[in-house]
């Protein structure tokens, strides 16, 4: 066993434990025996139709956010790149909102994740064009601020123009994200696209390793930049886009997780991908368990909690990296 094996097994074990804990967390008190088919019918219904999809979504969405963060950071060689911060999640939310409230999603269900995907693709391409290669941290953050607020404004506009009176109230979901009352339909809708996106992201390892020596050197090592770009931007759009379309945009996972794990794997970008996916899944599960176990009357939105942890962390990172590379 190498250190990496220990890390991966530890993360896997954490995800497994949290997954079980997540199945056991909620308003209703369930006993463990429900897992084995005991208990009344409604307890079974709660377990399989409410908590299982919720926990599954936490795992795959967390994994998508964690891995996309690791890939974006490696690709942009910028430790502050994250789907939420640079506006990809906001773009995905806009795309999803447009398909959902226009009624397109009612016509064919796949329109929702595809909408999220298109929005995410647009945003990630825009960020790349604005602040793609070797940009300063400041440029990246400013580009992210611009895209974020623009997408949020358009989302709010779309919601206010929607014919349905409930629509305008739902901006909170899209900005802060939630896993509450999701169903297996959401899982089956988003999971294939998220997994496809993650497969693309997994294929970027070599390219990201080479890129840590700069773009010219990476090309001299046989890396095709157009292919790598396609994998990174496409994979991010697919995984983050589909994730946000069913859970809203949950921030900071992709920022915090790769950063915490990087020293443990020796900083090689390719080695960070899988651990970041597992770490993201664990963090999102933990956050979702926490909001269900908090004694609040109305469940907090997931993004509230991740931002409470993530935003101070982001500031700390910003100050530290600015000191290192002014």
């Amino acid at each position: 066993m190498t250190a990496r094996h220990w890390l991966l097994s530890g993360l896997l074990f954490t995800v497994g434990t949290l997954f079980l804990l997540s199945l056991m967390s909620g308003r209703a008190e369930l006993t463990w025996s429900v897992l084995f088919g005991n208990g009344q019918a409604n307890a079974q219904l709660i377990l399989w139709e409410l908590r299982l999809p919720r926990s599954l979504l936490a795992v795959i969405v967390g994994a998508a956010l964690g891995m996309s963060g690791a890939v974006l950071q490696g690709f942009m060689r910028n430790p502050l790149a994250d789907a939420g911060l640079i506006g990809v999640s906001a773009g995905a939310a806009l795309g999803a909102v447009l398909t959902l409230y226009s009624g397109l999603a009612a016509l064919f269900a796949l329109a929702l994740p595809l909408g999220g995907l298109s929005g995410a693709a647009l945003a990630v391409t825009l960020v790349y064009l604005l602040a793609g290669r070797d940009s300063s941290i400041l440029t990246l953050i400013l580009a992210g601020v611009a895209i974020n607020s623009f997408a949020a404004a358009l989302t709010s506009l779309a919601l206010n123009m929607a014919p349905n009176p409930y629509a305008a109230l739902e901006i909170v979901f899209w900005l802060l994200g939630s896993l509450a009352e999701r169903s297996m339909e959401h899982v089956s809708l988003a999971a294939p696209l998220i997994l496809a996106g993650m497969a693309m992201l997994m294929a970027t390892g070599r390219g990201l390793d080479a890129l840590s020596l700069g773009e010219d050197t990476a090309r001299s090592l046989g890396i095709s930049m157009p292919l790598l770009r396609l994998l990174v931007l496409g994979g991010t759009a697919l995984s983050v886009g589909a994730a946000v379309a069913v859970t809203g945009s949950v921030g900071f996972i992709g920022l915090v997780v790769p950063h915490l794990l990087r020293p443990l794997i020796g900083y090689r970008p390719s080695q960070l991908l899988l651990p970041s996916a597992l770490g993201g899944a664990a963090l999102l599960l933990a956050a979702d368990i926490a909001i269900r176990r908090m004694p609040t009357d109305v469940e907090l939105k997931l993004g509230v909690l991740t931002a409470l942890i993530g935003a101070p962390f982001f500031l700390y990172l910003l100050i530290r990296t600015r000191r290192q590379h002014p």
Binding site: E49, L50, L100, Y101, G103, A162, N164, E170
Partner: peptide
């Protein structure tokens, strides 16, 4: 047509 109303469509 909205998320709020989707809760009424939840399989459970």
């Amino acid at each position: 047509s909205t998320l709020a109303e989707q809760t009424l469509q939840h399989p459970a």
